[in-house]
């Protein structure tokens, strides 16, 4: 497998359904999807709350959230590493070098993206429907689910952006996961490993498989969205 066309190798990897590769693909999806689900659960209401409520330091919160979208994965990984290391405050949980640690690190990376985009979308929508909602006697708190639901198609893009960041990053999962064969090895860390072994065609082939995977997730989300829109008429 050392020499050859990366596209041919990628095709071969997919057709062979190599169990090692399937395990790596499965773990990649599991870790990133879990991180995105948790980040969406926390980030969507958080963004909406920042959009609707006025509180001291709100400007700083908005700017901070936007800035955190650029948090380097390596830094996020290092922070989680220091937190979960036995020498760190949460060391007794024994989570370092487990998929759970990878989920925590990726959640940290995805949360700002989802929250910041949710804030923007909900804020725009609130401007539009403010009077209508207030005339119905709806409080700001009770407006949050209504607005989130109404903005769901726009918010999906934010969630998918978060998934893109999670599935593409290598810095954080490498540090907190340790790239352990069969335990914490995901697509991106496997690509980094094959690159460092000088097996560039295989590394590129894995990259192609990862791209196809991300496209598959995005296409699925798109189709579900289209179908839902059509049903609503």
């Amino acid at each position: 497998m050392a020499a050859g066309n990366p596209f041919a190798i990628a095709l071969e990897l997919i057709l062979e359904r190599d169990p090692v590769l399937l395990g790596i693909v499965g773990l990649s999806l599991q870790v990133s999807l879990t991180a995105v689900a948790i980040a969406a659960l926390l980030g969507l209401p958080l963004g909406a709350a920042i959009a609707l409520f006025r509180f001291p330091g709100r400007g700083i919160a908005v700017a901070g959230l936007n800035a955190l979208m650029g948090l380097p994965p390596v830094v996020a990984g290092l922070m989680v590493y220091l937190l979960l290391s036995r020498a760190g405050p949460l060391g007794s949980w024994g989570l370092l070098f487990t998929p759970t640690a990878m989920v925590i690190a990726q959640t940290l990376l995805v949360l700002p993206i989802i929250a910041a985009l949710s804030r923007q979308v909900v804020e725009d929508l609130w401007e539009e429907y403010r009077e209508q909602l207030q005339s119905l006697g709806s409080s700001r708190l009770r407006a949050i689910p209504t607005l989130l639901w109404d903005a769901r198609f726009s918010l999906v893009t934010g969630v998918l952006a978060g998934f893109g960041r999670a599935s593409a990053e290598v810095g954080a999962v490498l540090i907190v996961g340790g790239n352990i064969d069969g335990v914490t090895r995901v697509m991106t860390t496997a690509i980094a490993l094959e690159t460092s072994r000088g097996d560039l065609p295989l590394a590129l082939a894995l990259g192609i498989v990862l791209l196809l995977l991300v496209m598959l997730v995005n296409a699925t989300a798109y189709l579900i969205g289209e179908q839902a829109k059509r049903r609503l008429g």
Binding site: Q30, A37, I38, P99, T100, T146, W149, R152
Partner: peptide, 25 residues
């Protein structure tokens, strides 16, 4: 009706996150 569908979606998200992390654990 958005409210109840929102709750259902929320429920699905919680369930998905729970299931995924459970298999990881």
């Amino acid at each position: 009706p958005g409210r109840s569908r929102f709750r259902r979606t929320l429920g699905c998200l919680v369930l998905a996150a729970g299931l995924l992390s459970a298999t990881i654990a």
